[in-house]
């Protein structure tokens, strides 16, 4: 237990951050270079104003027609993404660990709020999973990788709730919690989770195309 803990919170923690940051940087640079080489036109049409206009519409709940057509998905998606970022960044237990290691800390949430946010993430993943197996048009597109990613994303939150409530076996579960969090971080650059970084660019580009060339809305 102590050895595993030492590895998880020592070298593996550094490794996962390094893979996350290094991998993301690598993917960014390689995509940028490829775009410079092959998609020069993209840079010509990118337009900050229209890119932001499109992004703003799509980051506003029910700001696009498709969101109004799928209200349940919209609510869950927004709740999921917000909770996914807020909970780990501002839960006291994480911030105090940062304070211990780096001597800095920031705003923290009451534990009960972080608890609810984590439960929201887990339930959202359950919703996404149900959608993946029940909606034919989603099932058709779903691969086993999608399911695995969903599990990897849900895992740190499910174990986090488990550990917080100190359910049976929680000390071991703490290790699983740390590992699954590191795993999630590390796979971001190499999986569809990288959409967190690509979203502003895909959205921004189509927004620029629609706004600047096509003079039409894209929401």
């Amino acid at each position: 237990m102590h050895d595993i803990y030492a590895i998880l919170t020592g070298p593996l923690a550094w490794l996962s951050f390094a893979v996350f940051l290094g991998g993301s940087l690598y993917r960014f640079i390689s995509l940028y270079q490829l775009a410079r080489k092959k998609d020069g036109a993209v840079f010509q049409y990118m337009d900050l104003k229209f890119a932001l206009r499109s992004i703003a519409h799509w980051l506003t709940p029910f700001g696009a027609k498709n969101m109004r057509m799928n209200p349940a998905m919209t609510v869950v998606t927004f709740a999921f993404h917000i909770a996914l970022f807020i909970a780990p960044l501002f839960v006291f237990a994480h911030v105090v660990l940062i304070e211990e290691s780096f001597g800095i800390h920031w705003f923290t949430l009451p534990d009960s709020v972080a608890d609810i946010l984590s439960i929201i993430v887990v339930l959202s993943c359950v919703f996404f999973f149900a959608r993946r197996i029940m909606r034919p048009e989603v099932k058709f597109l779903t691969t086993w990788v999608d399911i695995v990613i969903l599990i990897i994303v849900a895992a740190p939150f499910a174990t986090g709730v488990w550990v917080f409530h100190q359910w049976a076996g929680f000390p071991t579960m703490t290790l699983v919690h740390i590992f699954s969090g590191e795993l999630m971080l590390a796979i971001i650059p190499f999986t569809k989770l990288f959409h967190m970084f690509l979203f502003p660019f895909t959205r921004g580009y189509i927004g620029s195309e629609f706004g600047g060339v096509r003079m039409a809305k894209d929401w």
Partner: peptide, 27 residues
């Protein structure tokens, strides 16, 4: 925050080093 961090470090670093004693939050 700093006081809590001080306690955590004092206890946990020793426990990890000696491979004994509680290390997780809930323990």
């Amino acid at each position: 925050m700093e006081l809590a961090a001080t306690y955590h470090k004092r206890c946990r670093e020793c426990h990890v080093e000696k491979k004994q004693g509680p290390i997780t939050c809930g323990a």
